[in-house]
């Protein structure tokens, strides 16, 4: 039986700590993807991996690139809807608070609307966000998922 998601369905990923390494792993992709030579590369210091540089920019220390939380939200949606979400969808995320080192982050989503196309595809509209363990909202956004799965089956 196919899984179903109704209006009001809430999704929550297990908490993850935004460690220094997780911040750096993302930043290392920049130079690594640019080089594309089968080896890992590092770029110049950034606000995401160098405390002194981050402080020189007015921050108290390094902060996570917002795309880390965007990817964690996407992971939650992929785990829920499968690779449909990587093929035809929309995702918007806005970083409303900096995420600091070792902050706990929970990726969340709520189904707010479900439509059915004439072809039988379900279209799910969701609110998405990341919150801290103190329920402080860090990232907000919305997603649209086109899924072959049908509600009520």
């Amino acid at each position: 039986m196919a899984e179903t998601w109704q209006v009001g369905t809430q999704l929550r990923a297990p908490p993850r700590q935004m460690t220094r390494e997780r911040m750096r792993w993302y930043i290392d992709t920049h130079a690594t993807v640019e080089a594309d030579d089968g080896r890992i590369h590092q770029g110049p210091p950034t606000i995401h991996d160098d405390d002194a540089y981050a402080r020189s920019q007015g921050l108290p220390g390094i902060i996570a690139d917002g795309m880390v939380s965007t990817n964690w939200i996407m992971g939650l949606l992929l785990d829920t809807f499968g690779q449909d979400f990587a093929r035809k969808a929309r995702l918007r995320t806005k970083y409303v608070k900096p995420i600091y080192e070792n902050q706990s982050v929970v990726s969340c989503a709520t189904v707010k609307q479900v439509e059915r196309t004439p072809e039988g595809t379900n279209v799910y509209h969701l609110d998405v966000w990341c919150e801290s363990d103190a329920k402080e909202v860090l990232t907000v956004g919305e997603a649209t998922v086109y899924s072959g799965r049908r509600t009520g089956e």
């Binding site: 792993w25 993302y26 992709t29 993807v33 965007t70 990587a86 093929r87 995702l91």
Partner: peptide
């Protein structure tokens, strides 16, 4: 290579990103 490295870095471990058959890129790239 770049798709696998990116997905590894952001902990997207799905086989359609990190495998070698019908591999696709995550839209966040």
């Amino acid at each position: 290579f770049v798709v696998r490295e990116y997905c590894h870095a952001v902990e997207l471990h799905q086989e359609y990103f990190q495998g070698s058959i019908d591999q696709i890129a995550p839209p966040t790239m």
